[in-house]
Nucleic acid binder design. Sequence first.
DNA 1: CTGTCTCTATACTGAACGGTACAGAAAGCT
DNA 2: AGCTTTCTGTACCGTTCAGTATAGAGACAG
Lengths: 203, 203
Amino acid sequence: MNKPEAIAPARGRPREFCVDHALAQALRVFWEKGYEGASLTDLTEAMGITRPSLYAAFGNKESLFRKALDLYEHEKMSYIADALDKPTAREVAETMLRGALANVTGEGPHGCLRVIASVACGEEASSIRCEIMERTKAGKENLVARFERAKTEGDLPAHVDPEGLTRVLIAYLQGISVQANMGEPTEELEKLIDTALTLWPSA
Amino acid sequence: MNKPEAIAPARGRPREFCVDHALAQALRVFWEKGYEGASLTDLTEAMGITRPSLYAAFGNKESLFRKALDLYEHEKMSYIADALDKPTAREVAETMLRGALANVTGEGPHGCLRVIASVACGEEASSIRCEIMERTKAGKENLVARFERAKTEGDLPAHVDPEGLTRVLIAYLQGISVQANMGEPTEELEKLIDTALTLWPSA
DNA sequence: CTGTCTCTATACTGAACGGTACAGAAAGCT
DNA sequence: AGCTTTCTGTACCGTTCAGTATAGAGACAG
């Protein structure tokens, strides 16, 4: 659509706000309130811009959300890539769990944007739900492949089902998000993680 | 407030709809859309009554939701009481997990009303969220007590933390709800449960 | 300077929101 | 028959929703 646009030719009146900063503020609002719960008034007030500026810069509410979701995954879910690189399945799981806990109880709203947005969206925003489902499914398949590799490498027992184990791990992550969203303190969720790791299959 | 009202004295024009049936329809709408996602138009259309009738019979939207939540817990979450009566911790867990799966993938919308409503509600409906949090906390404490008993009875190993194990079990349930809500098929979630039971601590 | 381009700000659109006033309809009581 | 009581249906309240038309402000090219 756009050419590489090299260095912006800077024609016309220049924009008075920083797109990246505005997007970061929008992310925070979506994270707190979900997609449908975030009104344009909430968004524009947090972003410090007016509605026409928002529409000119980001298209519409849905495309703004998609950009915010990209930013979220890039900034807040980077622990997933780290986790997949760990040498053993147990370390993969532990890195995922502790990374998720830091994310959902650290700075920013409590809970995972993916879970909040997908559970909260009505049918009018079903394309949002589909988008999140697809991204979640892609992440799941990476984990299944990782645990299958772990089986061949002998750091998971032969009797475990990689698919089931992945769903268990994802359930932990979703449960942590839901409980953090309900305000459970970090220490309580650490107990959850410690117990989950106690249950984790040993080779 | 109301006296026991014995047999209704039946003064004035009688009501033309069945309150229980209307409440059941309201429950279905809240279950599909969450508290804020369910509009009065959605509700009255599904219930087959007009707005003034709804307000006369149920008070307002929030009190209608509370009554619907009562009905939901009584009708759809009865497996919890069954589970707590099982003789071993493993059977408690298995009954909870399979009961929850039947509930969130059976007839009716997919996912647990508690999870949907608590995650989806914005701050204007925070009293709803608080209500759900308290009910969830009460259920959690029952489970902790049950697992502590299981430890004294020797069907849980001494090293497990009942609190952590309860949070793990609740995370399973919440994860099942979130994944069912995303449309995952029953068989996939059975894999989750089977693996979770494989991991469950043995005495 | 004049044009042209792109941004900003005000003010608005029609629709949907939760909630209600009011008038009429249907029952029991006397 | 009235009279009272309670339900029903219509039509509305003010507010908020996502999205936009329009006018003006500010930067560049010529």
